[in-house]
Design a protein around this nucleic acid. Structure first.
Lengths: 240, 240
DNA sequence: CACGCCCGTGACCGTTCGGTGACATTCGGG
DNA sequence: CCCGAATGTCACCGAACGGTCACGGGCGTG
């Protein structure tokens, strides 16, 4: 193994999805390896080990469940996170009974996916430091306070603010890239996922809502800044 | 949280099998205890409690069925997972009749065994924490009071409230995540188990019932809050 | 066997959210 | 200074979701 960086194997036949997942895992600091089908994956696993296998259920040839059973039969206990096209509960059982550890229905939110990956790798104990992008439960900025566990906050005026799911997710993504520019496309990908594509105006609207909630003067934003022609930028402090 | 690590008692006379099972359970993060026969096990249980008993049917002296009946007669409701040498359906019936909760034929796949252990302990998790820690045995919020040991409570109006098992379990799970959002899926998994799939409407209905019991104005809930599109959130105090 | 209690489901309806289009406004380049 | 493009802002609509109720099946009990 290359040091203490966890390695993740992604078995997925859709090249587009695979590329996206791999890139994001890489960005999180994991070593990654892709495989287009179960056979490829099993060959690779014959001579490598890893901390987690992300396994699509629907694969050409041997499907994910079969591959997982095969793995377990070989005595390989690497954690498996299943991806499936539908949220069919029966699939969940089949996944668990074939020896999987977790289960995620497509289309999934990138944030949720990364969260589960992190959880699994932490559970298996390989993963202590790394990942500077630790999820912060409570965000404070300019007199506002937001708790992401409850989607709830309090603004500079002491007013309680109940965020919707999307509002909270957008704020979270912006805050995680605090100070950096985040393009509308980035936000769409991180909040909405890969398979859904609302227009970029939708993003504007959520920025608008966040400004109304947390800016003293929404017309003169000090936290949710527009970067003309590029995207948005979040600042905790008004003027640096 | 060291008190909340589930403890598993393994009653098995084959030292080889016993050692393997114990080691694997330990690797899963459970606290373990071994016993070579039923008498040993009963003695140990006289002064300890645990979350699960893995019980071999074929034991020297008192067999597993007899021991299970003895346990139940003593009022001990600890879940029991039977291990038996043959997949004889009659054995399964005898196991269930003597008060067992699950049943696995030897030789079994390790993964399947661990899966069942996990499932049982997840189902009974709430119960363990209730009976082990007195702090969570009684919940008080907004003039209401609920004793989880008796499924009984008293609401703000002084009316006595007899909770059903499911009502109590849902309330407990929500309370344990006080302030945080709990999704319907989480509730289903924690209360019902991983292999049962009631619809999400079922969860709504239990929330409805809890609101009727414990909210001054069920239409304007202050304790059982809805988080649209995500799940529910429990607050002890109306507005924190 | 009948009764009652739980619990799960389907249906109905009101509500909320998310996404879009229209229009006003601002920005930047020529 | 003017114009086109990007963004701010608002109002609206469809769809999805949750609240609520009533019904029915299963299980244990008397």
């Amino acid at each position: 193994m290359s040091g203490s960086v966890p390695q993740v194997l992604v078995v997925e036949d859709d090249p587009h999805l695979s590329a996206g997942v791999l890139e994001n895992l890489r960005a999180e600091g994991y070593a990654v390896q892709g495989a287009g089908d179960a056979e490829q994956a099993l060959v690779w696993l014959g001579s490598h080990s890893c901390g987690l296998i992300v396994l699509d259920v629907m694969l050409p040839g041997m499907d994910g469940f079969a591959m997982c059973r095969e793995l377990r039969a070989q005595g390989n206990n690497t954690p498996v996170l299943f991806l499936t096209a539908r949220g069919d509960p029966a699939d969940r059982v089949r996944g668990l009974e074939s020896g999987g550890d977790d289960y995620l229905a497509k289309p999934f939110h990138l944030q949720e996916f990364l969260l589960r990956v992190r959880a699994i790798l932490r559970r298996w104990d390989w993963y202590n430091s790394v990942s500077a992008t630790q999820a912060t439960a409570v965000l404070t900025f300019g007199g506002n306070e937001v708790d992401f566990r409850a989607f709830r906050g309090r603004n500079f005026n002491g007013e309680s603010q109940e965020l919707t799911e999307k509002e909270a997710m957008i704020l979270k993504v912006l805050a995680e890239h605090g100070g950096e520019i985040v393009s509308r496309e980035d936000l769409l990908e991180k909040v909405w996922g890969y398979d859904v594509f609302p227009s970029t105006r939708t993003v504007d609207n959520f920025i608008l809502r966040l400004r109304k909630r947390f800016e003293r003067d929404p017309a003169q934003p000090r936290h949710f800044l527009t970067v003309w022609g590029v995207g948005y930028r979040f600042l905790k402090d008004g003027e640096p």
